[in-house]
Structures are given as structure tokens and as C-alpha cells.
Nucleic acid binder design. Structure first.
Lengths: 220, 220
DNA sequence: CTAATTATTTAGCTTTAGCTAGAATTTAAT
DNA sequence: ATTAAATTCTAGCTAAAGCTAAATAATTAG
């Protein structure tokens, strides 16, 4: 079964929206996630339903099928492997990789994916700390909490970010809060939810609640 | 000015056909080069004319413009750089790279091309021995002749092949006639145009005229 | 130099993926 | 429980890129 590039993008968006908590994924949600109009989404949902990658009943909602799940994870796997390639091998900054990976993920060649995976040494996480599914779609994800939810004196390691906008990633780079950095919460301000943290045992930085909410920590 | 993937493919085909000798490129030639129908070609030529990458007068013929040339060479550059990547880094066999490179060449990102070029150490030739244009479209090509045209006792180095079909490339692999191999013509049979050559000073092989015609040699 | 053949182009259809405008359905609010 | 609002879907249009069939131009042959 073959999906077009557009279909892959829809399926990926649906998968991500399904993961991110809520009940069921709405037509409007997909439209805004994918930067298109609800009418176009309706139409595509019908097609994806026919291809049996989702189960779709109009006005009701949708659900990804096991087949759809597998295909979505394949695309996500490719996207994240390419991100690792771009950062590790071509020295892209982590805020420059998204658009390019968005194109590369649609290249069709199982051999290419296998070889790339091997070449990168079978990475388990992408540069943003998100897990890379294996060829069967299995994901080993680490339990992690938002920095905002940590208590005073708790420490851990930055493993991922929720927001991947270039502006946010550049900000993190500037303050030295890269993936893998070891941090410790020194203080929390009740009033505005901001936190003071120690990065890599040397630098003390101050973070607003909004920022701290978008940084995921593997506690230790 | 932006070209679609289809437009890039047509332009590339036109460029290659222009190079390969003849007078002017025909609609039929393009159709068979690109595996499509003449009617579709006519239509695309009109569009490429409007975009000013070719000069086109119907029934008369076409000519690539300097702009078209630049764009075609950019695509060829990307194709060949990716081929180097696939062979050198991902250990693809040289007969496995074409289809994948055909997809990768359409990825849009100047940063990516620059970084890839640097990562591969600014290669000047692809795995088939074809020259890789630089970012300005300049090509340093070496003067070379078909193995078939060499005289007895003349020697040189295999630098390219004209035919890149998997069948041909596999045949070459089998007999050990890879790019870079040093060869010497031991004998030529007038009757059928076949040649006997010594490869890398150790193996003697026998080649039909057809094969020898498709192997390009840098004489020494 | 017509006539036949071949090459090329045009017209009109198909599919994919978007869009707008308007209809239908569900949800919310008085 | 109706109406109002929001959501979702349908119909019909557009653009790209292909196709077939038919028309037109160029070339070759007798």
C-alpha cells in the first residue's frame, strides 16, 4: 500500500495529535496543524478512510488503524533519523533541521533507511530528544516530566523539548540549555511560576514558567 | 524562480540530450528519455518556455537558455553529490544508487547541498566517473575516449561509463572493471571489434565491441 | 510536386490536492 | 426545546501533470 506525500503528512499529523493527549482529533485541529483549510481535511479524511489507514465516520470522528499507525511511525522514524544525520554529520543547528527533514522523510527506499540507521549507529533519540521508532514501529520512550513540575533541589537531564520553534530553540542555545545538559532546580518562585536552575554545575539561569513548561527532564 | 519536480526532470533530460552530441533535441527523444508521451512533452515545453528556461518555437525545436543551463546543472550537481554519499558513506553498490538519487536530487535546501559537499570532501566526480558541477555550474571534465577507440598497447584508467543500466554495471563489477581500474589494451579483433585488455596488471579479460564502446578511458 | 509517413501539437479527459461558498450536522445557549 | 453558533461536509472550481484521440505541420518518397 502506497501513500502520497500529502497523505503521509496528514497521517503523521493525525498520529501526533492523537498522542498529545485529548479525546478525539478534530478536523479543525488537523487543518491548523497542517496549515490548510477544514474543507481540504474532510476530503483527505475520506481518502484515508478508503485506504483503511484510519477509521472515519463523518461528523463523528476518526481513529488510526493499526496499519495507519505503522505507516505513521515509519514516516516519523525517517524524519528523526534524517534529523540525526543533519545534526551529527552535517553539523546543522538543531533549529535548522526541521524543514529539510520534512522533505527527506518522504524519500522512498527501505534500503536507504536501513543503511542510514546503521551509519548513524542505530540512534534511539533525535536531536530534540524524541524517540526514534525501530523498523517495526516500536518506541522505547523514557519517562520524563516538564522542568516546571520539578521540585526544589531535584536534578536531572534535559532530554527533549515540547516546542520546537526556531525562536525557542535559539533561546535555549543561547542560555546553554541543550539536550543532554544536566540541571538542578535551585529555586522556584510561587508568584509567577518561574524557576532558577543550575546548568552543568556551572551556570545559573533564570527561566519563566512558559519556558520551563516546554523543557522535558529525565529525573535522577 | 522555482521549478517543480517534473519541470526539473524535463530540464535535466533536455540538458543531457543536448550534451550527447546531436543537432537539436526532439519532442520524441525527450518523451522516450523520460518515459512519457510526446503529447505530455509538448505541453511541458510550452510551460518551460514561459518560465524562460528554454527557448521554444513549436514545430521548430528548442534551446536551453543560460538560466535553464544553470538550473539543470544545479540538479545534476545534487544528483551526483547524493550518489557519492550513497556509495562512499552508506556503502550502496554503484548500480543501486540511481533511483534513490533521482528522488534526493529534488530536495530543496542550499544549505544542505553546501554541507553535503563539504562533508564528502568536495568530490569532483561521481561513482560513475561523471564530473560534479560546482555551485556555479562549472564542470571540470577530463578528456577521455571510449575503450573501443584505443589502440593496441595503449593504456589508461577507467573514469566513466556511458551506459548506467544496472545490468551493465553488474557485468562490470563481475569482471572487475570498476571506475579507477588501470587497463591496457592487449589486442583488438578487426572482425567483430572486440578487445582483449589487461586489468590492474593482473587479470586479462575479453570484451565485446558494445561493452568497450560504453567504457570511457583517461589515457596515459 | 503531390502523397504518404512521421513528428508534433491541441483538445479534452483524469487524478491529486488544494481552495471558496454554501449546506448539513452537532453542540451550546437562552 | 428551539434557536444560535460552531463544526464539518459537499459541490464545484483551479492548477499540475499525465493520458488518448484527433488535428496540423514537416519530412520523405514515389
Amino acid at each position: 500500500m502506497e501513500l502520497t506525500t500529502a497523505e503521509e503528512n496528514y497521517l503523521k499529523a493525525i498520529y501526533h495529535l492523537s498522542e498529545e493527549g485529548q479525546k478525539s482529533v478534530s478536523t479543525n485541529d488537523i487543518a491548523s496543524a497542517i496549515q490548510t483549510k477544514p474543507a481540504s481535511v474532510s476530503d483527505m479524511l475520506r481518502k484515508l478512510g478508503e485506504k483503511e489507514v484510519i477509521q472515519y465516520r463523518k461528523y463523528y470522528g476518526l481513529q488510526i488503524t493499526p496499519l495507519g499507525m505503522r505507516l505513521a511511525l515509519q514516516t516519523i522514524r525517517k524524519h528523526r533519523l534524517w534529523e540525526v544525520f543533519l545534526v551529527d554529520k552535517l553539523h546543522f543547528a538543531w533549529d535548522e533541521v526541521h524543514e529539510v527533514a520534512e522533505q527527506l522523510e518522504h524519500i522512498q527506499s527501505t534500503l536507504l533507511v536501513e543503511r542510514l540507521d546503521a551509519y548513524l549507529n542505530y540512534p534511539k533519540f533525535d536531536p530534540h530528544g524524541d524517540p526514534i521508532p525501530d523498523e517495526f514501529g516500536d518506541v522505547r520512550s523514557r519517562p520524563r516530566i516538564a522542568l516546571q513540575e520539578m521540585g526544589i533541589d531535584q536534578s536531572g537531564q534535559i532530554v527533549a523539548v515540547k516546542d520546537s520553534s526556531p525562536a525557542f530553540l535559539r533561546y535555549l542555545d543561547k542560555v546553554g540549555a541543550y539536550i543532554g545538559a544536566r540541571i538542578k532546580v535551585l529555586d522556584k518562585v510561587e508568584f509567577d511560576g518561574s524557576v532558577e536552575i543550575l546548568v552543568d554545575q556551572k551556570k545559573t539561569i533564570f527561566m519563566s514558567k512558559d519556558v520551563a513548561n516546554n523543557i522535558l527532564i529525565l529525573t535522577s
